[in-house]
């Protein structure tokens, strides 16, 4: 049939199943490297098996201590911590949104001059690099213990989160719309209000709702370094070996996170 004689038998003998990594030497080097790393990394985990074995029994006893969860005896503390977490979340999210909008505008290359751009990108980078806990340590050191430090931590983290995503969104927006508005003779602020804002508003609302959710989750751990919230209550419960109360706190956290997730999902669907 074909002009040049094609030998299917020879082709079949020569055929090899395609591999994920084309170069055989590179492939084996990667396999060997992965194996070596796994061995080294697993070796670095010092597991004292006798201790782990007795730990299991101890762990079982501790876990038994979690049941039944005790919501009642520390009701005051739990409610207090919860209210603190919620207020921190609300204020931090509001403050974060208000501050992140100018940062996002500054970090959008199509709107801001280079020095402003670099400065705003710097803020975003610092905020995103460090865990909330680390930021909280610094704020606690400066402002003393309490929810204010926690609130500022969350607000700072919100700036990084919203600022980055919003800036990317602004950079991705359709230039034609902005041009059309500019062509009408609109000023810079009018440009923002008529060309930028309408395009990014659904995403701004969606991201804010999502961040509200994240901020509550995070507020539950900031208490570990003294920055207020329900994490404080949890930490105290652990310190006093009141595991039944700790279990109650954990359940409350999960329930509220679920409620938050459900609400924020609902808000995001509503603005789509």
């Amino acid at each position: 049939m074909s002009a040049t004689a094609f030998d299917p038998a020879a082709a079949a003998r020569a055929w090899r199943p395609p591999a994920l990594i084309g170069d055989a030497r590179l492939r084996w080097a990667i396999y060997a490297g992965a194996l070596l790393y796994a061995a080294l990394a697993l070796g670095s985990v010092e597991v004292n098996w006798t201790r782990a074995a007795e730990g299991l029994e101890r762990g079982a006893r501790f876990l038994a201590g979690f049941f039944p969860p005790d919501f009642v005896s520390k009701r005051e503390e739990i409610l207090d911590g919860l209210l603190e977490s919620l207020t921190m979340t609300v204020v931090a999210t509001a403050l974060g949104i208000v501050l992140s909008v100018p940062v996002a505008l500054g970090a959008a290359r199509n709107l801001a001059p280079l020095p402003v751009y670099l400065f705003c990108r710097g803020i975003i980078a610092v905020s995103r690099t460090f865990q909330e806990i680390i930021i909280a340590i610094v704020f606690v050191a400066m402002l003393g213990f309490g929810p204010l430090a926690g609130m500022l931590t969350l607000a700072f983290a919100t700036i990084g989160f919203l600022g980055k995503l919003l800036a990317e969104d602004i950079e991705d927006m359709q230039a034609e719309q902005a041009e059309a508005i500019r062509a009408t003779g609109a000023g810079w602020f009018q440009l923002l209000a008529w060309a930028v804002l309408p395009q990014v508003r659904p995403r701004l609302i969606g991201l804010s709702a999502y961040r509200l959710d994240i901020n509550f989750r995070e507020s539950a751990v900031l208490g570990l370094v003294g920055a207020g919230g329900i994490g404080d209550t949890l930490n105290t419960a652990f310190d006093r070996y009141e595991f039944d109360t700790a279990a109650a706190v954990l359940i409350v956290i999960v329930a509220i996170v679920l409620a938050c997730e459900y609400t924020s999902g609902w808000i995001r669907r509503a603005v789509q």
Binding site: A9, A11, P17
Partner: peptide
């Protein structure tokens, strides 16, 4: 592991050649 019998692979090449796609395998 893509270990198909040799005659299957051969058949596949024969068919690919029939439709002019053997070089695209």
């Amino acid at each position: 592991f893509r270990r198909f019998p040799r005659r299957d692979v051969e058949q596949a090449f024969r068919l690919l050649d029939r439709v002019g796609l053997a070089h695209m395998a």
